[in-house]
Simulated assay, not measured.
Amino acid sequence: MKVSELMEFDASKYLKDENDYRLYLSQAFEGGDPVEIQAALGDVAKARGMTALARESGIAREALYRALSNKGNAEFATIMKVIGAMGLHLTLAKPEAVPRAAAKAKTASKAAVAKKPRPVAKRGSSTTSKSRTRASGAAHA
């Protein structure tokens, strides 16, 4: 099978109800990537029906397709209108705390990196670091 024969994945075909829409959008917002959020809004808009969403948001259907595509550059006002037309609203919250096990593992790995072994002086060396310092100090005096 050739790559050109493969169908492009369309998430909108798998979003069946309001709960699916909310979970899908929640994951996109959690990731924080604006392009991903915009594409997820486009997927949900297709799943719900772009024409109905255009009517409810007051934005032309063609403009919605462009704005919510992967290559679109929707204004924040457009995003807010789309979210409102979907019957949703944005809520801000502090990020969840890092679970303790993950935090301990991260701290342990940092400690291991910070504790690099010190180089050991070679045996049989006739000069020590103190004598080298004295010798270099005397040479400069």
Rank of each mutant, 00 (worst) to 15 (best):
96 E>Q: 11
11 A>K: 05
119 P>E: 09
22 R>K: 15
11 A>L: 12
116 K>A: 15
44 V>W: 00
105 A>F: 07
64 L>M: 09
16 K>T: 09
101 A>E: 15
27 Q>C: 10
118 R>H: 06
88 L>N: 05
118 R>N: 05
67 A>M: 04
120 V>R: 13
20 D>T: 02
20 D>H: 14
58 G>A: 04
105 A>Q: 09
62 E>W: 01
16 K>F: 11
18 E>T: 11
54 A>H: 02
105 A>I: 06
113 V>A: 14
48 R>I: 06
85 A>W: 00
82 V>M: 04
30 E>Q: 11
57 S>F: 02
31 G>F: 03
35 V>L: 11
120 V>I: 14
65 Y>P: 00
95 P>A: 12
23 L>Y: 07
137 G>N: 11
120 V>M: 10
24 Y>S: 02
130 K>Y: 06
1 M>G: 15
61 R>F: 05
106 K>W: 08
30 E>S: 12
45 A>P: 02
31 G>A: 10
34 P>C: 09
120 V>A: 13
73 N>L: 04
98 V>K: 10
13 K>Y: 05
80 M>F: 09
33 D>W: 01
125 S>I: 08
132 R>M: 13
136 S>A: 12
53 L>Y: 00
59 I>K: 01
107 T>R: 08
134 R>L: 15
75 E>R: 15
80 M>Y: 06
77 A>N: 09
131 S>G: 09
101 A>F: 05
29 F>L: 15
23 L>W: 04
70 N>M: 11
113 V>Q: 11
140 H>E: 14
139 A>C: 02
76 F>R: 08
57 S>V: 04
21 Y>R: 09
9 F>V: 14
99 P>S: 07
47 A>S: 15
124 G>Y: 04
114 A>Q: 10
54 A>V: 05
50 M>N: 00
107 T>L: 15
